[in-house]
Design a protein around this nucleic acid. Structure first.
Lengths: 223, 223
DNA sequence: TTTCAAGCGTGATATGGGTCACATATACTC
DNA sequence: GAGTATATGTGACCCATATCACGCTTGAAA
């Protein structure tokens, strides 16, 4: 595991969590922070591990997943620039509840748990932002529970695509490249079913594959 | 809506969140707190509402639920003594994401959002505990996602019962009274299916209805 | 180039579990 | 105690989806 101890306050500032924090405080934080680069496929933390560090994603992409004894997986979230993980271990002593794996090579800021706890104690603003991030993840998780319990695979695919889309000159477009395998794991469906559903959505004109990414028609929202 | 402004620091102290807080600070907190009694069926907060208050459950029982446009419901969690809700509104400005309804008459401590934000700023300990509670709820939500995505109704019923059980002279027993309707809504299944599954579990001796409550046999865990 | 691993498309088949349709039961209100 | 809602058992039906079993593509490694 390669950790360089050369995080500048400037690098920290690219993370929303640390924006607007006074320069001298940020300097102190930077001093506890390391950089870790991971390549595609690397597992950063494993479910069941004891908690060690808090991580901030500088760039790249990672998936948070749990799997059962037969190896079937569910992807709980995808993480990208600005996201935090491992912060739950700072406030209690439970082991990691999920595995985090890089789906593309990524740069992570690493801060030891104990250091981060001090940072929280000294920076109420960061405390609030961590709470805010937890609250948002909880809302997202609740929405996922809702969709698993109430919607069929069509609806779940549609919702996922809409959630991943950004507005690009008036159209909703999913830029991020994601495999159907992984879509399936994110919505609790089989890979085959996702294939069939997406093919059908394309033939109905609700979805179009361009080199820009997946373009969604508005009416996909009503599925 | 009946709110009495007569919360004593002693009442606050029954809530784990406030245990171990110094008496004078607790006194200040008590001064912003009101008491609200709600009877069975009362909806305390409604999804979509703007956030107003933070609530702590003194006693009773409430359910947190979301429903879709056809009125089909999912119960996200049950709340009981010591639980908090509405705290997510303190850190951001999203409207309420779920509805909270009393399933038995309950007493709630009510604190206005703005007051609670000040309390957080002055009490790092409470800040940490709120984070801890958010983290635990997130873990529980993730577990629920996992079970919805990977387990069948048998497994989900079994897991729910085990989660609700307490150990009572060597046996796992579910004391809390809960309707099969609500079990169904908690695990994303139909009421009928829950009936059938539980009947089957009883006939296989994995589950027994006594006046103590539902007694679970250990082997139910392997479903 | 060959090769190996991952991802993908698609048909056929089986089934878990939702939905409908009742009959019963239990409880709460007046 | 009558009357009205709310929870429950149970059978029949059938449909949305998982699963299996292929063969095809693509991309990276060797």
């Amino acid at each position: 595991m390669t950790i360089k101890h050369t995080i500048s306050a400037t690098a920290l500032r690219t993370i929303p969590m640390f924006q607007g924090i006074e320069a001298d405080r940020l300097e102190l934080i930077a001093r506890c922070a390391g950089l870790r680069r991971v390549s595609r496929g690397t597992t950063v933390v494993q479910a069941g591990d004891l908690i060690d560090n808090v991580y901030f994603v500088l760039n790249g992409s990672l998936k948070v997943l749990v799997s059962d004894e037969d190896g079937r997986e569910v992807i709980l979230t995808m993480l990208g620039h600005g996201d935090v993980f491992g912060e739950m271990g700072v406030v209690d002593t439970e082991p990691r509840s999920a595995t985090v794996t890089a789906v593309a090579s990524s740069d992570l800021i690493v801060i030891a748990q104990a250091d981060f706890r001090k940072i929280l104690a000294d920076n109420f603003e960061i405390c609030l932002r961590i709470m805010c991030s937890l609250a948002n993840r909880l809302r997202a998780a609740d929405r996922k529970i809702e969709s698993l319990a109430l919607m069929d695979v069509y609806g779940r695919v549609a919702r996922l695509l809409l959630d991943m889309a950004e507005t690009r000159d008036g159209r909703s477009v999913v830029r991020r490249k994601i495999s159907k395998q992984d879509i399936a794991k994110m919505i609790g469906a089989s890979r085959e079913m996702v294939s069939r559903v997406m093919k059908d959505l394309q033939s109905r004109g609700l979805l179009e594959e361009t080199d820009e990414g997946l373009v969604l028609r508005d009416s996909i929202a009503s599925l």
